[in-house]
Design a protein around this nucleic acid. Structure first.
Length: 301
DNA sequence: CCATGTCAAGGTCAC
DNA sequence: GTGACCTTGACATGG
């Protein structure tokens, strides 16, 4: 079990996901922004290592507009050195990595241009992880997509589109249960047809499920991850506690997180805390994790 | 300098 | 059919 947070570190004062507006695109601007992002990513990983944080989600904006037609730069070559340095740091320290394309990446869309853009976006994410030399345990998480008035058909469409993807993408792609359209049960069905692993989102499951308890859910989704996929991944967040003033200070409820650990004792997994205050929430739960025999700290590496 | 408007992309729902 | 919302910031421009 490794613990982490997504994309942004609020302590160290740099940003690994800076972008700019498309209309001000220039190759120079791209190179400048991407250089800073890559540099900041390295800083965030070093910060994480100091604090026993071995799971991290890399922001999709690492190389802005990389999947857009406007980008003519051969960025994997241009930044080869930076990617290799990052990759060796990640591999040496056994850091777990994920990425999560945005809402515009939809595989089961009926619109050809959307499919084309989505495929390019998935290819971009894959190329980032490949450029770092990471193995198949570095994952790209995606929601199943839209319903289009016919869920059964939409699921079959997803399966068909998944099968058509490049092997390099397939090796990394996992699906995540969402809060509205595709529940754990739906994802498991897609898994049975395709073999794609299911990343479990605790909050989404609470909002949309088929009556499975947390224990039952863990027993189900953890089985969808093969040896080559690595330890199953979990996204954890909770709804804001009804407190005055909580609006700007959302942070993890340590007791509730402790309940999760307690309820899922038989299972090993890597957990991403999707909480507004990012690494601060991770630091808050570290003392509890340190007492958990499943937890992997930097002392193990 | 500061305030405000705008930003690649999709899907869903309320009206 | 249109527009707000998701989610949130921060880039960019105009005053």
């Amino acid at each position: 079990m490794k613990v982490g947070y997504p994309c942004i570190n609020l302590t160290i004062g740099c940003k690994g996901s800076s972008r700019f507006w498309l209309k001000s695109y220039s190759e120079e601007r791209l190179i400048d922004t991407a250089s800073n992002n890559l540099d900041c990513l390295h800083k965030m990983l070093r910060f994480n290592m100091k604090h026993d944080i071995l799971f991290f989600r890399i922001a999709s904006d690492l190389i802005p507009f990389a999947s857009h037609a406007v980008c003519r730069l051969d960025w994997p070559s241009y930044f080869r050195r930076e990617f290799e340095d990052l990759g060796s740091y990640i591999n040496c320290h056994e850091i777990r990595i994920s990425m999560h394309p945005g809402q515009f990446t939809v595989l089961n869309t009926p619109v050809p241009s959307v499919l084309e853009n989505s495929t390019k976006e998935l290819l971009y994410h894959t190329r980032v992880l490949d450029a770092m030399g990471l193995d198949g345990t570095a994952k790209i998480q995606l929601h199943v997509g839209g319903i289009y008035n016919n869920k059964q058909k939409a699921i079959l469409q997803f399966i068909e589109r998944y099968r058509d993807l490049d092997e390099k993408i397939k090796k990394r792609l996992v699906i995540e249960n969402d809060e509205r359209n595709y529940s754990l049960r739906d994802c498991l069905w897609i898994h049975s047809e395709t073999g794609i692993p299911v990343l479990f989102d605790v909050l989404h499951h609470k909002l949309s499920n088929s009556g499975e308890s947390l224990e039952e859910a863990f027993a189900l989704f953890t089985k969808t991850w093969g040896k080559e996929d690595g330890i199953p991944m979990v996204d954890y967040s909770h709804q804001q506690t009804a407190k005055l003033n909580a609006r700007h200070s959302e942070s993890i409820d340590v007791e509730r997180f402790e309940c999760l650990l307690e309820q899922t004792k038989p299972f090993d997994y890597d957990v991403m805390l999707e909480i507004k205050d990012k690494e601060k929430s991770v630091l808050k739960v570290l003392p509890i994790l340190m007492r958990d025999p499943r937890f992997r700290s930097t002392a193990h590496v």
